[in-house]
Amino acid sequence: MMITTKRIKVIVAKLGLDGHDRGAKVVARALKDAGMEVVYTGLRQTPEQIVKAALQEDADVIGISILSGAHLELIPKVIEIMRQNGLNDVGLIVGGVIPPDDIKKLKDMGVDEVFLPGSSLKEIVEKVKKVARQKRGIDVE
């Protein structure tokens, strides 16, 4: 693999008032081990901060972990700010305790994938690659 081969860049962020970051860190680590460049932005991020990071870092995918139950409040804000900033081709993935009824709502808003507790790391890695391919045309072996 060439050093100048484009790598998938992912923002992993904790959105809103939620201090549980173990899951997000485990996912970030798995993405790193799969050869991606992962910018971890840490806890209690606002939608504005997350989109700013994705914008300046030229991320291919944003991965948001949210366990507070505020996903239907905050994810639409993230999507709106992404659009305002022209990030229409950036993937958006949400993971956390999401009630089954909300999965469709999130996907209808524009979320590319939703992961629930119990998702395997392998599955998450594959889906991130898929989203990066669909949204940004990045093909990794």
């Binding site: 790193k32 081990d33 910018v39 840490g42 991020q45 990071a53 870092e57």
Partner: peptide, 30 residues
């Protein structure tokens, strides 16, 4: 990583609030 070229970048988070200031551009690289 010398094996996968993957990278966990945890610098930006120490000053995430400062990245919101006007006239600041922050980029992380492996």
């Amino acid at each position: 990583s010398p094996y996968t070229m993957g990278s966990f970048m945890g610098n930006r988070l120490r000053f995430q609030d400062k990245t919101m200031l006007k006239n600041v551009f922050v980029r992380s690289i492996g």
